[in-house]
Amino acid sequence: MFAAVSDLRRTERTRTMMRVLREPLGAFGIALVLLMVGGAVFADLLTSYDPSRISPRDRFQAPSLDHLLGTDHLGRDLFSRVLHGGRIALSVALFATATSLAIGVVLGLVAGYGPRWLDAVMLLLFDSIKSFPTVMLALALVTLFGPSLTAVVIVVILVNVPGYARIIRTQTLALKGSEFVTAAQSMGAGTTRILRHHIMPNVISPLLILASMDIPVVIAIEAGMSFLGLGVRPPTPSWGSILNDGFTAIRDTPWIAVAGGLPIILTTLGFTFLGETMRDLFDPRLKRRT
């Protein structure tokens, strides 16, 4: 019998996905995202070049059948570097976003449901963190810990968590006094139960959409920090560092900058289109009869 419940849920979810695919922008977004994810996952199958092998003889080669996107100033194959850079960009984006989500949801629930003084303290904290410009925050952290992927992830988490927590907090506050929470209480549910089973399911879906729209921002932060030399350390490939390599030689060998910039643009566009289509479909105010 419970198969019935989950069946219904599954079809509901599939239906939503089908609706995203039916929107041209959504389908385009999904195609782009799949392309970039596929490239990152199957990087080793798609190219035989080692992304960090230096080959001085092959420096500054223009795109050809041998090197699909050309080579950089150290003779490294750019196609291979872009694919492997995609692994970094996407895994940082997914990991950092998921972690910020988890932390943001917990902090938001605590701030919204907990005592008032705690709420006030936490809001003050969120607002102070939010008031730092991202680049300044990144610079400060890198000065403290040195440039690394971890620094990138921490910056992203610090930037994202306050926003997520605030959204969850506001909604929790609104639901705190609602009748079904009182009802659950009077039926013997404790605080953790109420938060997990009654409040969280009510507040989580708008946040998921917001987070999917934040992925491009995270990718841009990683690329930006690597571009500035604050993120991934060479020789590990990152779209931002490829872009930086190409930047210095843009007059003579523009393909290097293109190889770094194009994947950033495509992935960002893909996730944005996907996120916006999902938002439009989920937002009841924009909902049309289908």
Binding site: A183, A184, A189, H197, N202
Partner: peptide, 19 residues
Amino acid sequence: RGQRISTVFQDPMGALNPV
């Protein structure tokens, strides 16, 4: 609460979790 003492509320829509 919920085991030995139970409660039914006035507004059945409000008392059930909508999601």
